[in-house]
Design a protein around this nucleic acid. Sequence first.
DNA 1: GTTAGCACTCTCGGCTTGAGAGTGCTAAGT
DNA 2: ACTTAGCACTCTCAAGCCGAGAGTGCTAAC
Lengths: 340, 340
Amino acid sequence: MPAVLTERQAEILRLVVREYIETADPVSSRSLVEKHGLTVSTATIRNEMARLEEDGYISHPHTSAGRVPSERGYRHYVELLMSEDPVLPEEQRTIEHQLHQVLGGLDEWLSLAATILAASVGNVAVVTRPQTVGARLKHMQLVELHGESVLLVAVMDDGRVRQRVLPQRTPARQEQFNQRAVRLNAVIAGRGAAAIRLAASELADGEEAAVVRAVAELVEEQRFTEETFLDGLRAVLEQPEFASADRMLHAVQQLEAYRVRRLLEQARAERVGITRVLIGREHGDEGMLEWSVVVSNYGDAAGSIGTVAVLGPTRMRYERTIPRVRYVATLMGHLIESVR
Amino acid sequence: MPAVLTERQAEILRLVVREYIETADPVSSRSLVEKHGLTVSTATIRNEMARLEEDGYISHPHTSAGRVPSERGYRHYVELLMSEDPVLPEEQRTIEHQLHQVLGGLDEWLSLAATILAASVGNVAVVTRPQTVGARLKHMQLVELHGESVLLVAVMDDGRVRQRVLPQRTPARQEQFNQRAVRLNAVIAGRGAAAIRLAASELADGEEAAVVRAVAELVEEQRFTEETFLDGLRAVLEQPEFASADRMLHAVQQLEAYRVRRLLEQARAERVGITRVLIGREHGDEGMLEWSVVVSNYGDAAGSIGTVAVLGPTRMRYERTIPRVRYVATLMGHLIESVR
DNA sequence: GTTAGCACTCTCGGCTTGAGAGTGCTAAGT
DNA sequence: ACTTAGCACTCTCAAGCCGAGAGTGCTAAC
């Protein structure tokens, strides 16, 4: 397999990939000549195609079908042949505007970002909440509930707001809860789960110790289903690769939260700022052989890292998807700074 | 159409419905006799079936197929022929145990309830958050964020905890925010959106007025997508009625949040405590002609009302679904009391 | 009122067939 | 040595056909 392609071969590969991404039909030598005004004949194209196939860039579904890019073909295309379709200032403004409309805090931003991204690339988009290794408590508050319970609300320095209903043996008024919150905040605000747990063990009052232990749990809690925002299922199912019922059902199964989580764990880009493209079996998930993943991490100075990704068939508009994933990831990076 | 069925006709109808629900195949006179040891011949069954068909209880996909229940047949079955499959104490314990494992507050309960219900009936389950007409603020809190913003956290008396990032011109320390929160709570805690808005207009300090206006918005905010918890998509798509790609895609489309919302609005049961069954076109949604909905409202003394529903093909195990929807609805009713 | 018997209808899977799409190869042209 | 016209060959796909099988409706007898 010669690693180098002639100029003409590269151009043919580029056109095959583009054409196939657009139409989803195997592309024939004739359609290539007709649609792109090539100055050579179909026979020449066929000869070149035969070479490309020998070298593993494209393949044949069956004898008398056109050519389809292989994983290697897509990879070559993504790395060398394609030019990115930039997110225009106009589109950037629209997206940022939509995000700023919503002032509800991190979760709403992440969810909306997934929706916007999905709509923009026509595939499934996933945005995970930044996983903070050493999250700290910013502030806690107790709110009196009817009956024998109290609502604990904890705000973390990674933007999470978590709550929990706690039983309360000795009834108290809101005012007393406020005082208790101020007292406890003085001890545990700004600290991580471990330090808070330690503080709990040193408290004389059993009820307060229970509250503080609960805070520690909330600080370190990472619940995946609630930490992942996914959208675009319907759009991806409309792609022709899922035109049969069993393929479609299979896709729906693969996109269940816990599977997507596993996939993203494997596919995680190494560093913030890099956008990775994993084509076909490159991501190593047996169930999603014909899927590609475009993934980018985002994070802040404090080292908490989240993921923005698009999942779709290998026949995906990489030109469009890659810059959009990258853009949304940087946007998310800015947003998490703002809720620190 | 004689409205009354003979005992034998009713029994045959009952068996046809049961058999069809179980197998999804049109049921023939022979299968009925064979499987249920009837003492009459297949010919007799056929005669009776012809009567049932005349009366509109069952129908014929084509000449040489067995019988399939019509909407009327299902209705008769649900109202008169079927006996409910109660939620056994064992199952109740399991469900309640799962719910009590999770202490995160209302949203997690609702979401988990949808998951449990979906798994238990093998169809799509939807649980909406109780829509409170006149929600009141229970407590608000301000948390200092890095930079020029502050996080407003509001706890409502219907169990919602909402947050919003607010810009903050004059930087301040957490202690000052606490004092401000105490001051503002004294004025607005326990009040509804209108009263809070009024209070905002009377405040001298512009920054405080902005905070209070934001609180008012949070108090009355009802955001549907975040207010609906849906699960069981995959299970329902495995039903044979969605065995072709276009039907499956159509189902996925119909189950998008905003459509489900419309459907539930139309299908809303009148009173808390009643479980309604809407079969086929009875729910009036053109796009979901072959779907049934089992729906039950739940609420608390204060009049906030939420919905628990199961959506699935008309060929649904009503015996099982109805009591489970009812049970989960009452459970939700208790839970919302507990976070008041 | 019930039932055996039978003709009739309809579906479904398998098979065949012909059209169409594309290729690979050969041989001739530049 | 590269390009290309021409053509045989392969494979898919839709349409049509066929026969088996399932079920019914009807008739006539019990």
